[in-house]
Design a protein around this nucleic acid. Structure first.
Length: 424
RNA sequence: GGAGAGGUGGCAGAGUGGUCGAAUGCGGCGGUCUUGAAAACCGUUGAGGAGUGAUCCUCCCAGGGUUCGAAUCCCUGCCUCUCCGCCA
């Protein structure tokens, strides 16, 4: 959520900023609603003031034994007007909120212009696309040939976009998780965190998935309005919702491994093959809660932490800065890390690292107390995948395959595999 | 699942339907004292919002209700704690 003051004092400039990402702010509607709001709010408050004052007076009059009936009647009439005013105000405020909650974040000035993913800018590249002296297979062929990856069984058990892994491949999947968690906790200073996989609507509003993107979520058939998490970002970030933390709590760095659940509504026909796009996948997520002045450094740092996973696995990748049209709703700036997939002869997203500045914090009311002013200030939140586990598994399989269809376990994972060096 | 007790400011903890946005303690901040610190003492200290401003409004878990007036009474929901039962 943007600072509401921007809509009152800097509306045109805000609209221009938002236009960069192709978002059209309905300034006319806002000006109109704001004018009404101001008018009615002032009215309402003055009526409330009158009621309070007179009611207090009744108390005093009663204490002195005066006749208070006429006064009661007078204030009683006031109450009707007040109720009407309060209702109008709340309706208006609701309409304004509806608009404001649907407005994306303002982009950082360093974000490149552009319309869609084709305009993203490569920032750096690590390694070169893996060369083979044979025709490399994709992970589906490899996995099925090994008899350790079964999409049919999964389709029978639930439906499409799920997978069953068996044997060493399932273990490799687990090994990746352990490896990533150890790396981030031991070398990058993150606190290992275990969080709920089910969240309420308030949490999803806090991080920005709601109200706009409900269709991407799995909602439980439960009158409490629970959802499966689409990413650990939601439960982790909401740890600081509605609290005022102390200065020495920051920078706070959380890492958690969780499953993620996404409905993938609207992506029919996209990545239908393999486990690139699943309804359920594992992810190791990095979240940092920092002071405003630190967030852009934190984004660079966090992106580096995600990259180091790929470096240690010796998987070639590149980092791209998302262009204005491609940056997500809540983010001011996003780097995608894309790993090389020989099966597709393409770089594919394996991590997305974003700085939300105070956008999520304002929705979450996540604040810290600044000793300099002794006042609460909004924190900044930064997060990124470190990494998407399923896609990392794909990358390992495809980049480390041999001609005979076996897979060489990356050195960094051999200990986690109990010494297994080749998956066959 | 059954029985009970609660949810109040950064924390702990009072609160009779009418100067209660809320006693008190701790913590924080400022000061006195001290070579310095501690102790002691004095002062100060919730959040959000409207308005150019004086000032005003809202918030005592959330949502409804009663009332001229609700932290206080009533209803619903959520959460926490204690006991019993069941359970990975």
């Amino acid at each position: 959520m943007l600072d509401p003051k921007l809509f009152r004092n800097d509306l045109e400039q805000t609209a221009q900023h938002l236009a960069r990402r192709g978002f059209k702010l309905d300034t006319k509607a806002i000006v109109d609603l704001e004018a009404q709001r101001k008018d009615i709010q002032v009215q309402t408050q003055s009526l409330q003031n009158e009621r309070n004052t007179k009611s207090k007076f009744i108390g005093q009059a009663k204490a002195q034994g005066q006749d208070i009936e006429p006064l009661k009647a007078e204030v009683g009439q006031l109450a009707e007007k007040l109720k009407a005013a309060e209702e109008r105000l709340s309706t208006l405020q609701h309409q304004i909120d509806q608009i404001v909650m649907g407005v994306p974040n303002i982009l950082h000035e360093s974000v490149p212009d552009g319309k869609d993913e084709n305009d993203n800018v490569e920032i750096r590249k690590w390694g070169e696309p893996t060369q083979f002296d044979f025709e490399p297979k994709d992970h589906v062929d490899l996995g099925e040939k090994l008899d350790q990856m079964d999409f049919e069984a999964a389709a029978k058990i639930v439906g499409s976009r799920f997978v069953v892994l068996c044997g060493p491949l399932a273990r490799l999947h687990r090994a990746l998780i352990q490896f990533m968690l150890d790396l981030h906790t031991q070398q990058h200073g993150y606190t290992e965190t275990y969080v709920p996989y089910i969240v309420n609507a308030d949490s999803l509003r806090g991080t920005g998935q709601l109200p706009k993107f409900e269709e991407d979520l799995f909602k439980l058939n439960d009158e409490r309005g629970f959802y499966l998490i689409p990413t650990a970002e939601v439960p982790i970030s909401n740890i600081v919702r509605d609290v005022i933390i102390s200065e020495d709590y920051m920078p706070r760095k959380f890492v958690a491994h969780t499953p993620c659940f996404r409905s993938e509504a609207g992506s029919y026909g996209k990545d239908t093959r393999g486990l690139i796009r699943q309804h359920q996948f594992e992810k190791v997520e990095l979240v940092q809660v920092v002071k405003a002045e630190d967030s852009h450094n934190a984004l660079e740092e966090l992106t580096g932490h995600a990259e180091s996973v790929l470096q240690k696995l010796k998987l070639p990748y590149r980092v791209v800065a998302l262009c204005a049209g491609d940056v997500g709703f809540s983010s001011t700036k996003t780097y995608d890390i894309e790993v090389w997939l020989p099966g597709q002869q393409k770089y594919r997203e394996i991590s997305s690292c974003s700085n939300f500045e105070d956008f999520q914090a304002r929705r979450m009311l996540a604040r810290w107390r600044n000793p300099a002013t002794n006042k609460p200030e909004l924190v900044h939140t930064v997060n990124g995948s470190g990494l998407a586990v399923g896609r990392t598994l794909v990358a390992v399989m495809e980049n480390c395959q041999s001609k005979d269809g076996t897979i060489k376990v990356p050195e960094a994972l051999i200990n986690y595999m109990g010494g297994i060096e080749v998956i066959k």
